[in-house]
Design a protein around this nucleic acid. Structure first.
Length: 410
DNA sequence: TCTGGGGTCCTAGGACCC
DNA sequence: TCTGGGGTCCTAGGACCC
């Protein structure tokens, strides 16, 4: 009975990933405190990763520039290069896929591997050692990883998280309690600040409390996720791997930006929304998707936020249609200084092949869109951008009011 | 204690229909 | 007409992850 076969799940987590990739790429950074920066220059810059040397000085992920510099004045800042991290990630995944085809990409620096039905199943620790050494040899000596092995995903990840960095730990069936005794509720994947607070209100303060909790009560208060947490506290997690090669299409595509300073001016905010709509539209077209729902999110200076969503009659990948919807949504939100804007397309579907439109103006619009995308693919984002008019007929419906006179006639 | 940018999933409640 | 119950669709928002 295969159902009774003990699962062997391996979880891989890269140590200080972005920072070690930078140290690998730039030898002069090795052994020195490095922070990988994202966001705007100045006060709103933020460390999204820190090297072990920086962490030793108290610098942590998601720390602001000023605070990090106070803790570690000789901190070296490097701007994040996500393209590079993605490329390195690909070589990691190539190594992992040599060990099992059942591979789930959890994030740019984390993955699950199911060894249950492979020849590695009998000695997963040897496999893990081999994975770690191959990463060092083939990706870079500075790139280190942690690996946890357990009968399910939850325990494998918990093991990695509890024993990193540079960990290699195996939890066998029967050893779940031992691992869970080392864990706090905050260590659980799925328990953030809010859930932790709500559990506390139920009198649940430890992993033991959670394991002993009445499922029905937790479900009433926290829904289905609460039940999953109770199971997890008992060492049980039935969730399957979301295998990469069978992975579902994305559910949504979005872009957001935190403004260098708070903005009140609607016209200025509209321009930013147009740029975000363009980024979303381009990504949809490049990926061959269209979105049926368009979603706007606004974060205000005081950190409160509004969100608005609209469902379209037919899915779209058109920048100007996305923007037209976003403008309508934007008209319905509060009028207050804005800190962040986000545009997302959801309910994605694959773009169907369609014969060239019968209507000349639509055909022109399609060709113009493709031409713009080609130019931007080649010369970079926003080489050709607003001010472009797809076609006169389209212009009437879709061109925003404040486009001004930067027009190119086709 | 207010941190960026990319996502995922779940739930409450209103609108609408029969 | 203001009265039931059930179902579905839709939006806003909450919470989590890295």
């Amino acid at each position: 009975m295969t159902a009774l076969m003990e699962r062997v799940i391996l979880h891989l987590d890269m140590n200080s990933y972005f920072a070690t990739v930078e140290q690998q790429a730039h030898p002069e950074l090795r052994g020195r405190p490095v922070a990988v920066a994202q966001g705007r220059s100045g006060e709103r810059r933020l460390a999204i990763a820190a090297s072990v040397e920086a962490k030793a000085r108290g610098v942590r992920t998601a720390m602001r520039y000023r605070e990090a510099m106070e803790l570690c004045p000789e901190l070296i800042w490097v701007w994040a290069d996500h393209h590079k991290y993605q490329e390195v990630s690909k070589s990691l995944l190539r190594i992992l896929s040599d060990f099992s085809p059942e591979l789930e990409i959890f994030s740019v620096d984390e993955a699950f591997l199911d060894l249950t039905r492979t020849r590695r199943q009998s000695d997963p620790v040897a496999a893990a050692k081999l994975i770690k050494s191959r990463i060092r040899a083939e990706v870079g000596e500075w790139i280190t990883s942690s690996i946890g092995i357990a009968p399910n995903k939850f325990l494998a990840k918990l093991a990695t998280d509890l024993f990193k960095p540079d960990a290699l730990i195996r939890i066998r069936k029967g050893e779940e309690r031992w691992l869970l005794q080392h864990a706090e509720l905050e260590d659980f994947c799925g328990i953030g600040r809010r859930i932790h607070k709500r559990l506390e209100l139920l009198g649940i303060r430890t992993v033991e409390d959670l394991a002993a909790a009445d499922e029905r009560i937790v479900k009433a208060k926290l829904g289905i996720n609460g039940v999953r947490l109770v199971w997890a506290a008992r060492g049980f997690d039935p969730s399957p791997l979301e295998v990469h090669s069978r992975r579902k299409d994305p559910q949504s595509m979005g872009h957001e930006t935190t403004l260098p300073e708070n903005v009140f001016d609607r016209a200025e905010l509209s321009e930013i929304l147009l740029r975000l709509s363009e980024q979303v539209g381009r990504r949809l077209r490049r990926g061959g998707f269209r979105g049926r729902a368009i979603h706007l999110r606004v974060r205000y200076a005081d950190f409160s936020h509004d969100s608005r969503r609209i469902r379209l009659g037919t899915p779209t990948d058109d920048t100007y249609q996305i923007f037209a919807e976003i403008e309508k949504l934007f008209a319905s939100v509060r009028y207050a200084p804005v800190r962040l804007l986000a545009v997302t397309a959801a309910e994605l579907s694959r773009t169907e092949w369609h014969p060239l439109s019968l209507f000349p103006e639509e055909r022109v619009a399609e060709q113009v869109k493709e031409a713009i995308d080609r130019v931007n693919d080649r010369y970079g984002e926003f080489t050709l951008t607003r001010g472009m008019i797809p076609a006169k007929s389209v212009e009437k419906q879709l061109m925003p009011k404040h486009f001004g006179n930067k027009r190119i006639e086709f």
